[in-house]
């Protein structure tokens, strides 16, 4: 069995916790309970006949008062950085976080940018911007924790990337 530590990063209230809950326990709640510190969940999956023990570190969201606790990043083998499609500033935040984390963990650390809440109607991030991100070599997956769109794909993709390292 292989264990992999994956961090969930991003601005506050983008849906990090919701994505993990949807993935691990197949539940979603409209209620917003802000994460304090870090919440650890795990999920056992089988990828190409390899048993992978995903240990998910769902960290508290970054806002003007709370900065990301870099100590929690230690030993992470991959990370998901999440932005909220309905709030433009969360994408800037996400990209900023992504850069600083890559600096700490190493440029080659597997990571994926998740654009969450794709089920909403008022989306503030234009398709052209998303395309340009992909052009820069950033893996992007649109997700909805609410409707369970792209959630499994996202965690599967990061797992595959981590196993390839």
């Amino acid at each position: 069995m292989v264990s992999k530590k994956v961090c969930m990063l991003g601005a506050f209230s983008v849906g990090k916790t919701s994505l993990v809950e949807q993935y691990v326990r197949s539940i979603f709640s409209d209620q917003y309970l802000s994460t304090v510190g870090v919440k650890i969940s795990k999920k056992l999956i089988t990828l190409d006949a390899t048993e992978v023990n995903l240990v998910l570190w769902d960290m508290e969201g970054k806002d003007e008062f709370v900065d990301i606790n870099m100590a929690y990043l230690r030993g992470a083998m991959g990370f998901l950085v999440v932005a909220d499609l309905s709030r433009r500033e969360t994408l800037d935040e996400a990209l900023q976080i992504r850069n600083s984390v890559l600096e700490i963990l190493g440029e080659k650390t597997p990571n994926i940018l998740l654009l969450n809440k794709c089920d909403l109607e008022t989306l503030e991030i234009p398709e052209t911007q998303i395309a340009s991100l992909e052009a820069r070599g950033i893996s992007v997956i649109k997700t909805s924790a609410k409707l369970n769109i792209g959630v499994n794909e996202a965690f599967l993709a990061i797992s595959t990337k981590m196993l390839a390292v």
Partner: peptide, 28 residues
Amino acid sequence: ESGLVLSNLVNKGVHDRDADMISGMLTA
């Protein structure tokens, strides 16, 4: 570094707790 469990043993007659979660929390 990662807080991942390398090995875990439970004494007899003790309920197994989820090792990964506990170790993760401990590290955190």
